[in-house]
């Protein structure tokens, strides 16, 4: 009995760990969709780039600076990675999306897919296509349960993921709800034309959403990079699909929806792996995506679709 409960709790913790990183990536999809009504298919690649920047910072920059204090290493890595990834996010919008905005949606979609393929190959050429290992900076954890039987564990790494995600999302929520720019983001995603008629430079607000989305993907990049301890140029694709599923599940365009969707998806996956088979995990995720698209296209927290131009 206790054993079953502990096993369940373990799966829940694992699911929430992965789920919170899905949520971080999903926010980028949902914010961009909310504002310009397009799916930024290159967003998964930003996350992938984030893992590489984190890796390069940890294994190259930090030793160069001679820093050994762990919190400082994490903060510097995060700052560098968020900054560089944001620059990529900003540039993607400028180069691939803005020139085709207002035209046929299919053109924007093709441009996004093209950008995604380009980034993948760009990293492959620059960094090689083989897996690279991330140093495991955060080790150890707590175990609880009877010494003989099944022990549930919460690693410090998982705890770090929870805390980092919580702070990031809390910060974003406050920013969107309270700040002047956050208010402008909401106004522009509701009625871009009207915002322009109030003198607001809507292009800047669009850029800002790409920057924020990319910065959050970079946070996920560091977290998952450390958690899995490995990265390669192809991880962006599947992570992007998962996060996209999470965004749709929660209701695309809704930020709380993306958070909820990410967590739900993570837990669903870990439960599937634990109680059925890990081979079914992706089938269940994408099955879920199809079911939602069929029966509740607005997602759990989404509003009915408003046609965006």
């Amino acid at each position: 009995m206790l054993e079953t409960a502990l096993y369940f709790i373990q799966q829940l913790l694992n699911g929430l760990t992965i789920g919170s990183t899905y949520a971080l990536i999903a926010i980028g999809y949902t914010m961009v969709y909310g504002i310009i009504g397009m799916i930024n298919f290159a967003h998964g690649e930003i996350y992938m780039i984030g893992t590489y920047i984190s890796f390069i910072a940890i294994s190259g920059l930090i030793p160069l600076l001679g820093i050994e204090y762990l919190p400082l290493i994490l903060i510097i890595t995060l700052a560098v990675s968020m900054f560089i990834s944001s620059t990529y996010g900003w540039a993607i919008e400028r180069i691939a999306y803005r020139p085709v905005r207002g035209g046929n949606r299919l053109i924007a979609l093709i441009s996004a897919i093209g950008m995604s393929i380009f980034l993948q190959n760009y990293v492959r050429i620059a960094q090689g296509s083989r897996d690279i290992a991330m140093p495991s900076l955060i080790q150890g954890g707590w175990s609880f349960g009877p010494p003989e039987g099944f022990q549930a564990s919460l690693s410090y790494m998982q705890l770090f993921i929870f805390i980092a995600t919580f702070i990031t999302m809390g910060g974003l929520t406050l920013f969107i709800a309270r700040s002047r720019m956050g208010r402008a983001c909401r106004a522009v995603s509701e009625d871009m034309k009207m915002a322009g008629l109030l003198g607001i430079n809507t292009n800047r607000i669009i850029s800002l959403t790409f920057v924020i989305g990319a910065a959050l993907a970079a946070v996920a990049g560091l977290l998952l990079g450390l958690y899995y301890g490995v990265t390669n140029p192809y991880i962006g694709f599947i992570a992007g699909l998962k996060a996209f599923t999470a965004a749709v599940l929660g209701g695309i365009g809704s930020i709380p929806g993306a958070m909820l969707g990410g967590l739900l998806l993570g837990v669903t996956e870990s439960m599937t792996s634990a109680y059925f088979s890990s081979e079914y995990k992706d089938v269940v995720s994408f099955g879920l995506l199809i079911l939602i698209l069929l029966f509740r296209p607005t997602g759990l927290l989404g509003k009915p679709e408003v046609e965006k131009i």
Binding site: R183, A184, R186, A187, E190, D191, M194, A195, L198, I200
Partner: peptide, 12 residues
């Protein structure tokens, strides 16, 4: 801006 409050609209 329907989703914004009255004051937020005025802020815009």
């Amino acid at each position: 801006f329907a989703g914004l409050t009255v004051l937020e609209n005025l802020h815009m």
